[in-house]
Each structure stands twice: as structure tokens, then as C-alpha cells.
């Protein structure tokens, strides 16, 4: 089905181009991520051992919040100018188009978070041995955040107070990812075997990949009615 793949490619390229033209949209969550993590040493004092203990949790929670902050960008602009309705009418399944949009969203928010995280790890005095685990756990976890977030963004599309509402809907669903993501990093520091953490994060990703696009597409159809 070359036609179908072409549509996906077009959509992906378009989303990336549009977002990069408005580069503040891409930079805001990233800067937010850095600022939030930097505030913790100021609030708690620069004691290295304290920072090391809280680092996994702090970096992961900041990643959750930064992802959430960027969620309304996922569908809102396309909804405002009517592109989204055209997509829903297109012959290609909406589920796959949603998945493509989520992929673009992750490349522009999740991936930058993953890439900048070693810098914050240094700031938070995380041992070098845990650095790889942090990056890998974020790499597995942030796509889940984008996928679940897409459901929340689709449900709150066009509602008043949508930005705060989406956090109410999505944050409780993020808890398993937070537990195992931060748990993996803390586990490495404590010297625990963390293979299970990664298996479970990968399982969450597989589950979210199969189910979340359906839910998000159904939610979009409800919101577009």
C-alpha cells in the first residue's frame, strides 16, 4: 500500500516542519524540564548525597510534567484550522494517523528530554554508572507518556480549561511508568538487578502502542462530532 505509507510520511514530515517553524513550541517544554530540575537543589540545599537520592524521582517527575505541558499542542492547532476534520475524513484509518502524530510529538518533546537528561543527571550528582540507565529508561518511558497523553489531549480537545483538565486525566495514568522508570535508576544506584524494570517498561510501551491509538482515535471522533 504505497499510497498509505506515503500519507504517513507526508503527515510526519508536515508535523515536524510545522513544529520546527514555531521553534518556541519545541523549546518551551525542554526549558521547563531543565528549570524544574534545577529548582530542587535550590529548595533542598546542594548536599550531594541528598541530591543523588532524589535525582531519579525528580528527573522523572519533571519529565512527566514537561510532557504534559506539551500535550495541548498535539491536536489543538490542527483542530483550530480544520485540518483534523480533513484527516478524520481521509480514507486512511484515523488510528494510524493518530499514531503518526504521536510519533512526531514524541520526536519533538520526548526525544529532546531524553537527550538533555545526562546534563541534568550531572547537575543532580547522579553517579556515572546510572547515566545509561536513566537515558534508557526515559527512552522507553517517554513514548508511553506521549501515547497516553494523546488520549487525554483528544478527550479534552476544544474544552474550556482543557490544559488543567488534561493533567487530571493523564497524571494518574502515568504512575506505573513513573514507578518503574524512576525505580530502574534508583535500583542501579542501590545495586539491585533492574532487568525486570526494563521488561515491564517495554511491556507498558507495547500495551500503550496497541491500545492508546485506538482510544485516542475514538476520542477524536467524539470530540469532532
Amino acid at each position: 500500500m504505497p499510497n498509505f505509507l506515503k500519507a504517513i510520511g507526508c503527515l510526519l514530515r508536515r508535523d515536524l516542519t510545522v513544529a520546527l517553524r514555531r521553534s518556541t513550541d519545541v523549546l518551551t517544554p525542554l526549558v521547563f524540564f531543565i528549570i524544574v530540575v534545577s529548582l530542587f537543589p535550590l529548595g533542598l540545599g546542594p548536599e550531594p548525597s541528598v541530591l543523588r537520592t532524589i535525582a531519579p524521582g525528580v528527573i522523572w517527575v519533571a519529565a512527566l510534567l514537561a510532557t504534559m505541558l506539551s500535550l495541548n499542542r498535539l491536536f489543538a492547532n490542527d483542530h483550530a484550522d480544520g485540518t483534523l476534520e480533513q484527516m478524520a475524513l481521509s480514507p486512511h484509518p484515523l488510528t494510524v494517523l493518530v499514531l503518526t502524530k504521536v510519533a512526531a510529538h514524541w520526536m519533538l518533546t520526548g526525544l529532546p528530554l531524553v537527550l538533555i537528561s545526562p546534563l541534568l543527571a550531572v547537575q543532580m550528582n547522579l553517579p556515572e554508572s546510572a547515566m545509561g540507565t536513566l537515558v534508557l529508561s526515559l527512552l522507553l518511558g517517554t513514548p508511553v507518556l506521549s501515547l497516553l497523553g494523546a488520549v487525554g489531549a483528544a478527550l479534552t480537545l476544544g474544552l474550556r480549561g482543557g490544559g488543567v483538565l488534561v493533567s487530571l486525566l493523564v497524571l494518574p495514568l502515568y504512575t506505573p511508568v513513573l514507578i518503574f522508570g524512576a525505580g530502574a535508576v534508583a535500583g542501579v544506584i542501590a545495586g539491585i538487578d533492574i532487568e525486570a524494570h526494563f521488561s515491564l517498561l517495554a511491556a507498558f510501551l507495547a500495551l500503550a502502542l496497541t491500545l492508546a491509538p485506538w482510544a485516542a482515535a475514538a476520542a477524536l471522533r467524539v470530540s469532532l462530532d
Binding site: 488520549v151 495514568l173 506505573p176 518503574f180 500495551l207 491500545l211 475514538a218
Partner: peptide, 21 residues
């Protein structure tokens, strides 16, 4: 309809959350 979708997403997640906790 919107809240039904949310409840379904929630009900899939509850066992996962429970297990994680």
C-alpha cells in the same frame, strides 16, 4: 461518550497501577 472512553482506558490501567504500586 467521552467519559466512557476515559473509563475504559482507566479500567485497563487499574490492574497495571495496582500491580505497580
Amino acid at each position: 461518550r467521552a467519559s466512557a472512553i476515559l473509563a475504559l482506558v482507566g479500567v485497563v490501567n487499574i490492574p497495571v497501577i495496582h500491580f505497580s504500586v
